[in-house]
Design a protein around this nucleic acid. Sequence first.
RNA 1: GGGCCUGUGGUCUAGUGGUAUGACGCUACCUUGACAUGGUAGAGACCGGGAGUUCAAUUCUCCCCAGGCCCACCA
Length: 782
Amino acid sequence: MALDLHENEKKWQQYWEKNSIYKFDRKSKKPVYSIDTPPPTVSGTMHMGHAFAFSQQDFIARYKKMRGFNVFHPIGFDNNGLATALMVEKKKKIKSKNFSREEFIKIVLEGTLEEEKKMIAAFKSIGISFDWTLLYRTIDKLARKTAQHSFLDLNRQERLYRKDAPTMWCPNCETAVAQAELEDKEIASTFNNIVFKTEKGKEIIIATTRPELLPACVAVFVHPTDGRYKDLVGKKLKVPLFDLWVPVKEDPRADPEKGTGIVMCCTFGDQTDMEWYYAHNLPLRMAITKDGRLNELGEKYRGQKIVNARKEIIEDLKKEGLLKEQKPIKHDVNVHERCKTEIEILPSKQWFVKYLDLKDEFIVKAEALQWVPPFMKARYDNWINGLQWDWSISRQRHYGVPFPVWYCKKCGEIIIAEEKDLPVDPLKDKPKKKCKCGSNEFIGEKDTLDTWFTSSLTPQINCRWVEDKAFFEKMFPMDLRPQGHDIIALWAFNTVVKALFHQQKLPWKTITINGWALDPKGKKMSKSLGNVVRPEEMIDKYCADALRYWAGLPVLGEDVPFMEKEMVSGRKFVTKLINASRFVIMATKDIKVGKIDKKKLLPEDKAILFDKYEFSKALNPTRNFFWLEFADFYIEEVKSRVYNDKGSSGKVAAAVLHEIAWKTLLLLSPFLSYATEEIAQTQFKSRLKEKSIHLESWPEADTSLIDEEAEKIGDAINKVVAEMRKKKTEARKPLNAPVKKAVVKIEDPKVLKEVEDVIKRTMSVKNLEVKKDKEFSVKIEF
RNA sequence: GGGCCUGUGGUCUAGUGGUAUGACGCUACCUUGACAUGGUAGAGACCGGGAGUUCAAUUCUCCCCAGGCCCACCA
């Protein structure tokens, strides 16, 4: 009778929930093991990547629980971001702009409940052991309060500053953009050879892809060793179309190989322009507005969008004979990852966290963190070494966590909110005191905090930093941060930064970096490629345990192509496990359970692997032991004993079967959490001490019972049986075909002495002769 | 351009200084009393390419090639 795996999984899911199997016990005296789960974006759908990464995390959580830890396994949903705002706007057919920030946050929190429900159901269906009573959202009151508290603390430490700084700016979203929000995009563009003129009227050709920045030109650079332009240095050049003269300067950052080897510097065309601006003390000529148009410096092109202005300027240059050549090129430009608009560099008032001075410390301190796999630390180091700007934390967005900040209308003084009033919304709330200039009128900060400013506080949110001091002291730092390698530079780094600032400690002891679930060809799964496989589909088609099995196969950190056939193997394994256990119970029905162990299961070896986060190395050998050794040989050999021999040897065999099957179940329970629960609850009730197999302790092997002699005997039986099977197969006979006579030649016949019976019964041999010979051989007669 | 990682039978993968593990697939045979979502057996790889170290390299070193991720550059 086949078991309905789906019904079965549902049944146990409900059972776990009803009995709060995964609830964190605040009162327990056991040591805590805590996990800082990545909060997935609320979208209503679970990705294969979620199923993959969370399953792996779950193996660890379940293992730790079995090892006697009080496991703290919380999860949050990320709804503090543009993606969520857009989703809610679309769903409700509203615009966030039409609501106050506070109202819109409320709308988001309520409007995403439906998506949350779907995701919760999905995570539950794969059997992830989250404690759902700990659920938080990255825009909820706790998160806002934590973020604002963090802001206040950084302010106390004089780590915050606000200044008019060249900022990477998205003219489409009209917001500042962080280094990490950039993306490369290859676009087609034109290299324009444009004529600048010397005072004497000599034509100097300068190549540029951005002629619309001519009105922002402040200098022209050549390489110091470039002989071609030596005599120009120090002179001035006339910018075409505009009444503008700029100096020619030397700088090694000008590449003689590129274009004509002479380059114009505009404030600001790119990052090099910015470096020159500082290095050569150049004037600031901003020709671009925040919405991506030319301003009054653009003269007749004023008000034009960047792309249009470029076109018109090129036309006018052509007309005046000032455009010598145009070369179509393809080049990579920085675009905003969300809207793919080219980034501009504009000065604007932004809040920054000062941290560039601590780069070395960030690297050195993180050495105390256990990185799994260890080489991932290099990516973190790389990122920090490449950092050039302080952390810009302002976003010109309506939706998000507000700054707890006002500005005095009269004197411009910055007023920071009081601790006890958090969380505040400066657009709605007012400072409690007058400004020191006596004014009572304030302007609330309209900007919101970079989402990473809040997301970098998940350990503080999980451990209730702003709500429960005693609890926080007990729980912080957390034990484990599992996350993807794509966000080492963002999430991992920012979280370390915050914890070092606030707690002067690392936020966790270990960080594990999981790989990605890819499509079968090794490509990233994405909607546009149409190669997305939904985990729910796979659960429906196979079962959740099969999906978990797949997630348990690869080495942590490896990207894994999703192969449906792995699901088939997973389900077969589940079936095999159930069937073999059923046999064990049948065979051992009326026999008292003994305490005999058998070789090679070695739970402590598996434990070491888990402790090293190498769970796949625990899963595979356990599976192989169970299937290839236990089921294929041991069960077969023991069958005849159990069925035919009701004497003492039968009892021993049955006891061994029972013992091994149970220990195997325990070892597999972190992976196949449903099947093992089913088997334990229905067939091994006598062994089960707790309400669930997932509350049982990790099995201990009684090493004193490992008997080398017995192992030798076991190996000899397996060898002989395998050979006899082969002979029968070669003779095209069924495996249970009776054998009249068999002759086994073996170097040490003594080892088979006691087990000749076993061989005879297993292989239906009537007469068995064992002879001594250096060469091992088996002959059979039918 | 820089950093990190990966490259083992058709596919995925284990592993080691002395030519290699397992799975899936494939072929043949077997309805044996837990399981045909099964069993047994078999074919199939000179471990990306080249050079070096060594008695010996898939395993160590260097170079190259391919793929991935991150960073930088991008007039």
